[in-house]
């Protein structure tokens, strides 16, 4: 209990105090200089907009969150599978890896409309954009973890005449676990960004609306207070997903008895 108290004071209090300070200055500045609400809404107005649209924002967070989580899950699955493929054959890695980098370098805003066209003007398309944006760090980290194995350990396995499958399941895959945790932490944030970007293009169907949809609508009406409220909700969603993935990752790493890998691609 004492430790929790200390944690609250040492870790949670400083950023909250800073937040209150910024909000106070912001509130003061907007009223002092009479800044129009469509340019910069005061914190009070943002809060009011959030209250007014609370049901919409909440269901939007749910919808965007599930699209992001689904995109993220697909990334983990497909990214790991591609990493497995790359780690088993150098030829496949050489011939396909450049296209994986293509996934990373293509501006997502440019291909999002195409993806929406292919995968449907709704949830499917949004998940596809989320997946495309978040799969790359999984591919690189999975490949790194599966191939960056201590050469002496590979010799050890060879000494005991281990089969290819034994080396994969007893050495390469367990070795890749900390790398996958690193990849997952990068990818989960990207999956939320992907889902919101996808919704900016896709989510205009009636009925369910995600955060990207609300952002696009509010922006179109110059309802800047609502835009800010939706932006804050997006941030909260990102942080929540990242915190969940991080804590699951920390639990796994603790069971693995090794720290995070020393070298891996951390760029998202």
């Amino acid at each position: 209990m004492k430790r929790l108290g200390a944690w609250l004071v040492e870790v949670l209090l400083p950023p909250l105090a800073f937040f209150a300070l910024v909000a106070g200055v912001w509130q003061g500045a907007t009223s002092l200089w009479d800044v129009p609400a469509y340019l910069v809404p005061s914190p009070e107005r943002v809060l009011a907009a959030a209250r007014e649209h609370d049901a919409d924002l909440l269901s939007a967070m749910q919808l965007t969150g599930s699209a992001a989580l689904l995109g993220f899950a697909l990334s983990m699955l497909v990214g790991t599978a591609l990493g497995l493929l790359f780690s088993q054959s150098r030829i496949i890695q050489r011939s396909m890896y450049p296209y994986a980098i293509f996934l990373q370098t293509v501006p997502i805003v440019a291909i999002a409309p195409v993806l929406i066209m292919w995968f449907g003007n709704g949830f499917g398309g949004v998940v596809a954009v989320s997946f495309i944006l978040s799969v790359f760090p999984i591919i690189t980290n999975a490949t790194a973890g599966l191939t960056a194995v201590d050469p002496t350990l590979l010799e050890l396995f060879e000494i005991y005449n281990a089969s290819r499958w034994q080396s994969l399941f007893k050495l390469r895959l367990p070795n890749a676990v900390p790398y996958l945790v690193t990849g997952a932490k990068i990818a989960c944030g990207l999956s939320v960004i992907g889902a919101i970007v996808g919704e900016l293009f896709a989510g205009f169907e009636t009925g369910s609306a995600g955060l990207g949809t609300l952002l696009a609508r509010a922006n179109g009406r110059l309802d800047t207070s609502y835009v800010f409220a939706a932006v804050f909700c997006s941030t909260i969603l990102s942080i929540a997903i990242f915190a969940a993935v991080s804590s699951i990752g920390a639990t796994i790493l603790a069971r693995w008895h090794i720290g995070a890998p020393r070298s891996s691609t951390t760029k998202g």
């Binding site: 201590d150 050890l156 396995f157 000494i159 005991y160 005449n161 050495l171 676990v177």
Partner: peptide
């Protein structure tokens, strides 16, 4: 045949007994 390397070359995610069991699993 067995080989003892310069480093202990243990698998960090396995317990001591699971590490010792490894050659039996592989064979």
């Amino acid at each position: 045949l067995s080989f003892v390397f310069q480093d202990a070359t243990l698998l960090p995610w396995r317990t001591v007994s699971a590490n010792v069991r490894l050659p039996l699993e592989l064979q």
